[in-house]
Design a protein around this nucleic acid. Structure first.
Length: 818
RNA sequence: GCGGAUGUGGUGGAAUUGGUAGACACGCUAGCCUUAGGAGCUAGUGCCCUCUGGGCGUGAAGGUUCAAGUCCUUUCAUCCGCACCA
């Protein structure tokens, strides 16, 4: 009998599966399709980490189950290879980003293969391949054609370390999420995608997909929809009402309490509103505000600084003269960059008014004391005709007044900003635009796509905010597609979120050089059935790709409005001590080391599955692989013993029933658990099954041949999604034809699960005093009678009358004593 | 501040959804066995006690119930996301 040694079997089966192309997804196959998508990796220089392994192992388990259940499964993999980390890696190692990418992908590929994932490698691609980014560029031009890609001079988040602009989503606490450098503001001409136009769509779409609350709520939060009104105020000297100062408010009901206006320092009207004798203080304030980084603004504990402009506006409903102030607690980028301040009903305005001794008018009466700021609803006061009205009713009432009088309108406002789509870097998709002095920004004609990234000697980013591409004059200088005159190429590249915004669609038709994908194939594969990924991409990749997809749907380029029917996010694996794994701490666990150490990929896969609920952040325990390896050995030994030809014959019927029942129970538990993504309890169900089989073996010695064949066959099939190599090996050793992974998933018979005898718990006053074994469905009176004579129970009943006996069928008797 | 979670043995985690708390593992203890290994097997392992029995026990405090890890109220702690968003 051969010993279980993963090194003998894992590489062998990996080769065999590849030769057979076992995991190929077949276009237009008549079986039901199932698209199991996991986020494709960014091929960094460090190789796969445990987070990847967790994600892809879960994906593989599900894909294998769905395949065995008779689906045409697409479980694909690619590489998201453009972006800063590779560029930085290349600079550090003095190689080209192309070479760095090649090197890193090779590492990733061999690591993924060593895990035995059932991936359709024929469909793999990388985003940096011109044959792929040709279509990323083509899709960008669709946005451009529709006016959803535009250029604007914007104050952007600039990372001085990476020397590039960043999107809002990439800035975390004022720092670049990748390198942790403090982000500065810079004014640069940038490409933007008008994601704000899809704010409502993106919210609406969430109602029709199966996302965890946590993720959906986060997106809703990020989009930040609020309803209110825009109201125009006018400078007291602007009698012609030429120059409105528009504010946004969610509380039109407090309009009568607006006692001053505040403009953000960036507000375009600041200089025109500021009086001569206030210019110096205002300018000084603005300068100071501009020099602050986000972090500094936050670290000042929200101290409400501000300066008076010397001007006054008129409150349109009270006709009162109210001062106009400038303060950085008003954000330039949200709403109109100006607010009406209602200190009695907004805590920030309250704080500001108190600090700068500005008037406060209470307009809503409620439980809160009159001399305090209150944001709660109540009854209107100091509000003219609206007095006595409920504040909730006053909101629409005042909006209609404002609309009637023509100084404002109802308005829905979003926190979401347009997506800054330019990066001043080499290693990205060139933006396929040509700038002509006469025709402005012109799309590169489709037949000239892809605009290939030229090979260059220097790809280090520049300090000027210009892409390194701008130095390559024979690439930059070209002719205008409109007029043929001299023109220049756009030198900014796309962010690394570009290629990942549509990659799943390319798996449906990866080699197409006529279209980004054949519409018939898009129709066949449809929505991704399940998308597994990290929680950290909720407001980046996940939101961006939904935006792209919704746009493509509106362009009739894809058949469904949402890309992913269901989304789940796996938890993070921490180091054994509960801290985050990081290179600097030196506590990173390398999955390849675990495989190479002799435990093998199967044990590692099982350990990952067994670790914790899939969505839970949890520490890695190195010993767990030893445990799952031990389990696989037990499976190996049990199967080998059962194959021994000397063991044959017929055994006791009672034992045969037990073997069969245990098998059906295992099938039920494992099937249900995987379908609910309860991988950890699925593994424990497998372990219980094996433990049970070992006990039965002691009694039966494989005498019930048919039952044992049945049990072992099903056991191997149930293990197959988790530990595909050992399952395939033992399947083959058992004389089965074909791969276990294309065999039909076992089914269970519910009737066979039911045992004739049940254990009934007996309680006295709610406390457990004993158990009795009774026939299933025995009449209540008989069970209670039997429970009363249970020796320990009887002792309690002796001196007391029974008030009540609670009976739960086949489960429990509780005697309540007086 | 807003939004989302999570608190169960020494550890990772189970618990049929209100019905035997701690499944399954890791670790540990004792014993057995062996071509001494990263083995294997058997037994034990929530805490406490006057130990063939009994008491206590799911972050804390109340409550509902014959019965609560599970439901309700209050509270504490930790983690994640957003954050002067008018």
């Amino acid at each position: 009998m051969k010993r279980y040694n993963p090194k003998d079997i894992e590489p062998k089966w990996q080769r065999t599966w590849a030769e057979q192309n076992l995991y190929a997804a077949i276009d237009f196959d008549s079986r039901p399709k199932y698209v199991m998508l996991t986020e494709f990796p960014y091929p960094s220089g460090d190789g796969l980490h445990m987070g990847h392994i967790r994600e892809y192992t879960y994906g593989d388990i599900l894909a294998r189950l769905k395949r065995m259940e008779g689906n045409n499964v697409l479980y694909p993999m690619g590489y998201d290879a453009f972006g800063l980390p590779t560029e930085n890696y290349a600079i550090k190692h003095r190689i080209s980003p192309q070479a760095a990418t090649e090197r890193n992908i090779n590492t990733f590929q061999s690591q993924l293969e060593s895990m035995g994932y059932g991936i359709d490698w024929m469909r793999s691609f990388r985003t940096t391949d011109p044959a792929y980014y040709r279509w990323t560029q083509w899709l960008f031009l669709q946005f451009f054609k529709e006016g959803l890609a535009y250029q604007a001079e914007v104050a952007i988040n600039w990372c001085p370390h990476c020397k590039t602009g960043l999107s809002n989503e990439e800035v975390i606490n004022g720092r670049h999420e990748r390198c942790d450098t403090l982000v500065e503001k810079r004014l640069l001409k940038q490409w933007l995608l008008k994601i704000t136009q899809y704010a409502e769509c993106l919210l609406e779409g969430l109602k029709h997909v199966d996302y965890p609350h946590r993720i959906a709520d986060q997106q809703v939060n990020w989009i930040g929809r609020s309803e209110g009104a825009e109201i125009n105020f006018y400078d007291i000297n602007d009698e012609q009402k030429k120059q409105p100062i528009t504010v946004f408010t969610t509380r039109p009901d407090t309009l009568f309490g607006a006692t001053f206006l505040v403009l953000a320092p960036e507000h375009p009207l600041v200089s025109s509103v500021t009086r001569i004798n206030h210019k110096d203080t205002v300018n000084a304030y603005i300068k100071q505000a501009q020099s602050k980084t986000e972090i500094e603004r936050q670290s000042e504990e929200r101290d409400k600084t501000g300066v008076f402009t010397g001007s006054y506006a008129v409150n349109p409903v009270t006709s009162e003269k109210i001062p106009i102030w400038i303060a950085d607690y008003v954000l330039g980028g949200y709403g109109t960059g100006a607010i009406m301040a209602v200190p009695a009903h907004d805590e920030r305005d309250w704080e500001f008014a108190n600090k700068h001794r500005l008037p406060i008018t209470r307009v809503i009466k409620n439980d809160d004391p009159d001399d305090m700021c209150t944001t709660k609803p109540g009854v209107m006061m100091n509000s003219g005709n609206f007095n006595g009205m409920k504040s909730a009713e006053a909101i629409p009432a005042i909006i209609s007044l404002v609309e009637k009088e023509g100084f404002g309108s109802k308005k829905v406002q979003y926190k979401l900003r347009d997506w800054i789509f330019s990066r001043q870097h080499y290693w990205g998709e060139p933006i396929p635009i040509i700038h002509c002095p006469d025709h402005g920004a012109v799309a590169v004609p489709y037949n000239q796509l892809p605009v290939e990234l030229p090979e260059v000697a220097h790809y280090e980013p520049t300090d000027t905010g210009e892409s390194p591409l701008s130095a390559i004059s024979d690439w930059v200088n070209t002719s205008c597609p409109e007029c043929g005159g001299p023109a220049k190429r756009e030198t900014d590249t796309m962010p690394n979120w570009a290629g990942s915004s549509w990659y799943y669609l390319r798996y449906y038709d990866p080699r197409n050089d006529q279209e980004f994908a054949d519409p018939k194939k898009l129709e066949y594969w449809g929505e991704v059935d399940l998308y597994l990924g990290g929680m950290e991409h909720t407001t980046l990749h996940l939101l961006y790709s939904r935006f792209w997809h919704q746009f493509l749907y509106n362009q009739k380029l894809v058949p469904s409005p949402e890309p992913y029917a269901a989304r789940r996010g796996q938890g993070i694996i921490l180091a054994a001590d509960g801290s985050k794994m990081s290179k600097s701490k030196g506590n990173v666990v390398n999955p390849s080391d675990i495989i190479d150490s002799g435990y093998g990929a199967d044990a590692l896969r099982l350990a990952i599955a067994f670790l914790a609920p899939y969505d839970q952040t949890t520490p890695w325990s190195p010993e767990s692989v030893a445990g799952t390896h031990r389990f696989l050995q037990r499976v190996w030994v049990l199967t080998q013993e059962s194959l021994d030809p000397s063991k044959q014959g017929l055994g006791e019927q009672a034992l045969e029933d037990k073997i069969r029942r245990a098998t059906h129970r295992a099938i039920k538990n494992v099937t249900e658990d995987i379908n609910h993504l309860n991988f950890n309890t699925a593994v424990s169900a497998l372990m219980e099954f094996v433990n049970e089989l070992y006990k039965l073996k002691e009694q039966d010695h494989f005498a019930n041949r048919l039952a044992w064949n049945f049990a072992i066959t099903k056991l191997l099939q149930l293990i197959a999604p988790f530990a595909p190599h050992i399952a395939e090996e033992l399947w083959s050793q058992s004389g089965n034809q074909g791969s276990i992974h294309t065999s039909q998933w076992p089914e269970y018979d519910n009737d066979l699960l039911i045992e004739g005898v049940v254990t009934v718990v007996v309680q006295v006053n709610g406390k457990l005093r004993g158990t009795i074994e009774v026939k299933r469905d025995m009449p209540e009176a008989e069970v209670v009678a039997q429970a009363k004579v249970q020796p320990r129970v009887a002792a309690y009943l002796k001196d007391h009358a029974i008030n009540k006996a609670v009976y739960v069928k086949n489960r429990l008797v509780n005697f309540v004593l007086s």
